[in-house]
Design a protein around this nucleic acid. Structure first.
Length: 422
RNA sequence: GGAGAGGUGGCCGAGCGGCUGAAGGCACAGGUUUGCUAAACCUGCGUAGGGGCAACUCUACCGAGGGUUCGAAUCCCUCCCUCUCCGCCA
């Protein structure tokens, strides 16, 4: 959510940002509603002042044993007017909020302006692409041959794009989760949390999934709860409606959770294997930081996510998203794409973003600025570190041998207990 | 699911129609005293939204939303949450 005052004072900037993000919101309507609101407020507040004064006078009169009937009758009128105006204010306010909640965050000035994927900027490449003297297989073939992923039974149990990991496949998943969590806790200084996987509407709104992405989420109707599409949601909301202490910042959490996404409308794309599935595992990092530090924190966050791939010795590149590709709530975002040798493709395994105060304002997460004594919104950031399925793809495809077996990355062996999947 | 109790400022906690934005305490900040620390004393200390160049001023907020009333933290209704007990179940 953007600050209404900011929108009022920077209307053209906001309009430009909406356009750059390729969203559609009627900012002029919001401005009109806002000035209407203030007009009504002035009227009704004046009446309330009158009422307060009169009420005191009535109290005094009664105490002195005098009749206050005339004043009371008079105030009945005023009270009705107030009720009337209050209702109008409420209507105008909710109309304004309805518009406001559809306004995306402002992209950071450093974000390249663009109209689509093609305008994203590659900022870094790491590692050497594996060279193989045989035809590398796609991961689904490897996984099925090795008996570590059962696509058919996953589909039987739940439907297309649900998978069942078996034996060493299941263990690989667990090993990766443990490796990543340990790394972020021990080396990067994060606190591990294990949050709820079902969250309420308020929570979904606070991080910006609602209202825009309602169709993308699994929803339990009876209780009006949503399955989380990412740990970002419950973890960021841990501090919703809280005032944090400056000395406690930055607060850094890492969490493993499964993620549930309906992927509505994306069928026909990446239909094979693990590339796009409805339930996947992810280790996430979330930070609450002081406003001035958020862009440095973003760089650190990115480096910490990269660290996972470097330790796994998987080649990757870092992409800076252009305005058109930025998510609704993000101000700046880097994607990390890992190389998959079988598919000969770069696959997104991480997205590291700063939201500035956008989520904090929706979620009402503030901190006391010690030098000013004022409460200010924190900046929130999050990044995947990493999403598991595509990491698994990269491991299977990049570490495969001509015999169809898969070498286990060095760093994973103490978790996995063996050095080859065969 | 059933029965009770309760949700007040950063925290604890009083208030149960007007004198309460809210006693008192703790915490915090500034000051006085002090060899240092501590203690004691004094002062200050909520948030949001309007209006004003500003000093300042108005309005709202006691879990949320409605209602009664000239006036609601206080009375009524609905909902949410927490705790205790019972039942059921991992």
């Amino acid at each position: 959510m953007l600050d209404l005052k900011f929108i009022r004072e920077n209307t053209n900037l906001v309009k430009q940002a909406v356009q750059n993000k390729r969203e559609k919101v009627d900012i002029d309507k919001l401005i009109a509603l806002d000035s209407q609101r203030r007009e009504l407020l002035q009227k009704v507040e004046k009446l309330k002042q009158e009422r307060n004064t009169a009420s005191q006078a009535i109290a005094k009169q009664k105490k002195e044993g005098k009749s206050a009937d005339a004043d009371i009758a008079n105030m009945q009128q005023v009270s009705n007017e107030i009720k009337n105006l209050d209702n109008q204010v409420k209507e105008v306010e909710s109309a304004a909020e309805e518009v406001q909640q559809w306004i995306p965050n402002m992209p950071h000035p450093s974000t390249p302006v663009g109209v689509g994927e093609q305008d994203n900027v590659e900022v870094k490449k790491w590692g050497r692409l594996p060279e193989m003297d045989f035809q590398p297989k796609p991961h689904w073939e490897l996984a099925e041959n090795l008996g570590i992923i059962d696509f058919a039974r996953g589909a039987k149990v739940s439907g297309a794009f649900f998978v069942n990991y078996v034996g060493l496949g299941a263990k690989l998943e667990r090993s990766l989760i443990n490796f990543m969590l340990d790394l972020h806790v021990e080396k990067h200084g994060y606190t591990e949390v294990f949050p709820p996987f079902l969250v309420n509407r308020t929570t979904m709104f606070a991080t910006g999934q609602l209202p825009k992405l309602e169709e993308d989420m699994y929803h339990t109707q009876v209780d009006d709860l949503f399955l989380i599409p990412t740990a970002e949601v419950p973890v960021t909301n841990l501090h919703r409606d809280e005032n944090l202490e400056e000395r406690d910042l930055p607060i850094k959490y890492t969490a493993y959770t499964p993620c549930f996404r309906r992927e509505a409308g994306s069928y026909g794309k990446d239909t094979r294997g693990l590339v796009r599935i409805h339930q996947f595992d992810k280790v996430e990092m979330v930070k609450f930081v002081k406003p001035g530090t958020s862009y440095d924190e973003l760089e650190t966050l990115l480096a910490e996510a990269e660290d996972v791939l470097q330790l796994l010795e998987l080649p990757y590149r870092v992409i800076e998203l252009c305005t058109a590709d930025l998510s609704f709530a993000a101000a700046k975002c880097y994607d990390i794409e890992v190389w998959a040798a079988g598919a000969q493709k770069w696959l997104e395994v991480s997205s590291c973003s700063t939201f500035e105060t956008f989520q904090a304002r929706r979620a009402n997460i503030r901190y006391r600025n010690e030098s000013t004594g004022k409460l200010e919104f924190v900046h929130t950031l999050n990044g995947s570190g990493l999403a598991l399925p595509r990491t698994v793809i990269a491991i299977l495809e990049n570490y495969q041998t001509d015999e169809g077996t898969v070498m286990v990355p060095e760093v994973l062996r103490r978790y996995f207990g063996r050095d080859v999947i065969k």
